[in-house]
């Protein structure tokens, strides 16, 4: 098995005066989807934002063996980390093409033509709409654009916060297919999902987050078969 690309040891994150994530540990390997599932407010988004550097993180965080606690977001992006935020965070008044080009900002000065073509190949819809403003696109197209923009920085670790949020099932399955392809091409994926079933089906590794703690962690198939998890997160059966 390959070396982990991202490792957290005893990582805690505070949001305002309140500690929202309490000492969690995880490691994500290249070519693997690691999913964190849990209810709204469990601390999943806070954790992801802290890994990306939007919030300060206490404890040890290493990326490719190097401590990242003191790195700026810019340096983290340049090192190969990318986050697709829950709210997409697109540049609404700018075109699809400009959004994608800015995705390659940390590699500015180098040609980005191949990366653009690769994104367009993955999401043909974006190519059709390359000159359209981002804020005029549908929810699914925006999610594609957000992922495409992240890919433009050639991430080694792609973090996705609720990619299925508000999307029709068919689009969700399209997006999960893309995520799986990326994994097969060697990208490490850290995925946060409310849609526990889809996430567990796609992932190799999973953790369940409750109230800022990982209550269980292991191979996704094992987690998916856990009766406790079934009742709380897949509870309709």
């Amino acid at each position: 098995m390959s070396e982990p690309i991202l490792t957290l040891q005893n990582a805690s994150v505070s949001y305002g005066a309140v500690e929202a994530v309490h000492g969690v540990s995880l490691s994500v390997r290249p070519g693997e989807i690691f999913t964190v599932i849990g209810a709204n407010g469990a601390g999943k988004t806070t954790l992801l934002n802290a890994i990306m550097g939007l919030l300060p993180l206490r404890g040890t965080a290493t990326f490719q063996g190097r401590a990242i606690n003191d790195l700026s977001i810019e340096q983290r992006v340049a090192a190969g980390m990318a986050l697709v935020a829950e709210s997409r965070e697109l540049f609404g008044a700018m075109s699809v093409l400009d959004n994608l080009r800015l995705g390659a900002w940390t590699r500015r000065g180098h040609a980005d033509g191949d990366d653009l073509e690769a994104v367009f190949a993955r999401f043909p819809r974006l190519k059709e709409r390359r000159d359209q403003r981002a804020d005029t696109m549908s929810g699914g197209e925006r999610q594609m654009l957000a992922i495409g923009r992240a890919l433009m920085s050639r991430p080694k670790l792609l973090m996705l916060d609720e990619p299925s949020l508000g999307l029709a099932p068919r689009i969700v399955s399209d997006i999960f297919k893309v995520i799986d392809t990326l994994r097969l091409q060697g990208t490490a994926v850290l995925l946060i999902e409310q849609n526990a079933r889809a996430a567990l089906a796609a992932a190799q590794h999973a953790a369940v987050m409750e109230l800022g703690n990982f209550t269980s962690q292991g191979p996704a198939a094992v987690i998916a078969a856990d009766p406790g998890i079934i009742s709380s997160y897949l509870g309709l059966h």
């Binding site: 700026s72 977001i73 965070e89 540049f91 800015l102 900002w105 940390t106």
Partner: peptide
């Protein structure tokens, strides 16, 4: 220019700009 667009991007969405690594 990409630099100009980066500045505009920061004005449009500060978080988005940070996420693509614009300082």
């Amino acid at each position: 220019t990409l630099t100009g667009k980066a500045l505009r991007a920061t004005a449009i969405n500060r978080t988005g700009a940070r996420l693509v690594g614009i300082s």
